[in-house]
Simulated scan of single mutants.
Amino acid sequence: MITLISIALLSLSLADSWPSPVYVSDEPHLTVVASQPKVITFRGGNATLPCRLDRDIEDAFGGSTMRIKWTKLSPDFSKEIDVLVSMGFHKKMYNGYNGRVHLQESDENDASLVFTEVRLEDVGKYKCEVIDGMDDATDVVSLELTGVVFPYSPRLGRYNLNYHDAEAACLEQDSVVANFDQLYEAWKGGFDWCNAGWLNDGSVQYPITTPRGPCGGNNTVPGLRNYGLRDKTKSRYDVFCFTSNFKGRFYYLNNGFNMTKFTYDEAAQACENDGSQIAKVGQMFAAWKLLGFDRCDAGWLADGSVRYPISNPRRRCSPTEAAVRFIGFPDKKHKLFGVYCFQAFD
């Protein structure tokens, strides 16, 4: 007969043979911290997107098992574009980032991403993700450029660009399709434009500082008028482009006292003869906004338009505001205008 004492002793013996319980904490052992949510630089400059690890060293796996990944978020946040992946000594850069990005690695907890020769298309939000064993942590940093937003429509006239045409149009003018933040900052600076244009997230908007009938109504408030997301293939609007500093010289071709007027072809050839290229619309806007370029002479640009930049408003030039004045797309055979040239620096 098994006594109660025997049962007790058997229970104690079995208990001694069981493994000790393991308690798992819900607290993360790893976090990443971006010391600033936004980094601002200029085209051609350098930038460091901060990302530091904050981890429990006793529980962290560390070493070659830790994986650092930087991705760029698409404007509508629907996908991620690989920028850099690092695991121990193994590192890989992707797409147009190869040779232009690297990890700062000032210490074992530094996962910051360093950019060199920043491009217009680099603007956007970047995600820093660190995986260490079972721990995974992320943070997001925005990279922005100083620059200028400008409206653009082609020779065909108002509302002739689908989204893909708009992208190409901006690129041809030394710019990219502007994002919402860039248009919003331009609006805060007084930008007022009544034609709707594409932004890089596929939405169509326009900035109004002075409400009026044709632009949303007299009784509306100032702000960005938003048409929402539109069909990128079928819908047609203008576009808001964004450009930044350039490495080069923008100038009006002036042959001494001989104020030569050109046809379009003659203008392009005159710039080439001067060791330059006929300037693009984005280059004129950048020179005007960022360098204070001021010239009261209408001149040809690469897209066949005629414009002139005024930083100091005055009678007969631009009496009420600083602006890039638009003459239009005249017949290219008319010998009525000068020319603006651009000489790129290496």
Rank of each mutant, 00 (worst) to 15 (best):
M1F: 12
I7M: 14
A15T: 15
D16L: 15
W18A: 10
P28M: 02
L30R: 10
T31A: 11
A34F: 12
Q36T: 14
P37H: 06
V39C: 08
I40K: 09
I40L: 10
I40E: 08
G44E: 11
L49Q: 10
C51I: 05
D54Q: 14
I57Q: 11
A60Y: 04
G62V: 00
T65N: 11
M66Q: 15
K72A: 09
L73Q: 13
S74M: 07
P75N: 05
K79C: 05
V83C: 11
H90C: 15
N98P: 08
R100G: 05
Q104Y: 11
D110H: 07
T116D: 13
R119W: 08
L120M: 06
E121D: 14
C128G: 03
C128S: 08
E129I: 02
D132L: 03
D132C: 09
D135T: 09
A137C: 03
D139N: 13
S142N: 12
S142K: 09
L143R: 04
L145S: 00
G147A: 08
V148D: 02
P151R: 10
S153H: 01
L156C: 00
G157H: 01
N160A: 02
L161P: 01
Y163W: 04
H164M: 02
A169W: 04
C170P: 14
E172R: 12
D174R: 07
V177I: 11
D181E: 10
E185P: 09
E185G: 11
E185Q: 15
K188R: 14
F191M: 14
D192R: 08
A196S: 11
G202E: 07
S203A: 11
Y206N: 13
I208F: 11
P211R: 01
G216H: 06
T220P: 06
V221A: 14
G223P: 14
G223V: 15
R225N: 11
K232F: 06
Y237N: 05
V239D: 01
F240T: 03
T243A: 01
N245T: 09
N245E: 14
F246T: 13
K247M: 12
K247G: 14
K247N: 15
G248E: 02
L253G: 07
N254D: 12
N255A: 04
G256M: 00
G256P: 15
N258Y: 00
K261S: 05
A267E: 05
A268L: 07
Q269T: 12
Q269E: 08
S276M: 08
Q277N: 12
K280V: 01
V281N: 07
A286C: 02
A287I: 03
K289E: 12
L290C: 12
L290K: 03
G292E: 02
F293R: 00
A298N: 08
G299A: 01
A302V: 03
A302K: 09
D303I: 00
D303H: 07
D303K: 09
G304W: 07
R315Q: 15
R316I: 01
V324M: 10
F326G: 12
L336N: 12
F337D: 06
F337S: 08
F345G: 13
